[in-house]
């Protein structure tokens, strides 16, 4: 079973993505902040990571910066999930090394499609 790591500081946000992905047959792990996300990623070697951009402490950009430095995570698909809808945010995320970008609120089908596209 493919493993997905979901990092979001809001428990409801994590549960939503977890339910959605479990229904689609993925094994889901949760992290409630950036540091935990980095640790979990190293421990679990997930097939895909979904990162909330806005997290207290180490945010999504901080997490991806750390992970992309490690050879092990050079090719791991990482999706940015954010409630910010400012122009230029997507470009900034892609430049930081994200492979996907989804804004909240998500459409269930859009997230499913993005995960399927990236996880293969």
């Amino acid at each position: 079973m493919k493993r997905v790591l979901v990092a979001d500081d809001k428990a409801t946000g994590r549960e939503l993505v977890r339910t959605l992905l479990e229904n689609s047959g993925y094994e889901v792990f949760e992290a409630s902040n950036g540091l935990e996300a980095v640790k979990q990623a190293r421990d679990l070697s997930p097939d895909l990571i979904i990162l909330d951009i806005h997290m207290p402490g180490l945010d999504g950009f901080g997490v991806i910066e750390q992970l992309r430095r490690e050879e092990h995570f050079a090719a791991t698909p990482i999706i940015a999930l954010t409630a910010s809808a400012m122009m230029g945010d997507r470009e900034r995320a892609m430049a930081a090394g994200f492979t996907g970008y989804i804004t909240k609120p998500i459409g269930l089908n859009a997230l499913r499609a993005e995960v399927t596209r990236l996880i293969r």
Binding site: G13, L16, A83, S84, A85, T103, K104, P105, L108
Partner: peptide
């Protein structure tokens, strides 16, 4: 941004 965050889960869970 703050309004979209809870709306995200309301819409998601209703779906």
């Amino acid at each position: 941004h703050e309004l979209r965050t809870p709306l995200h889960t309301i819409i998601g869970f209703s779906e």
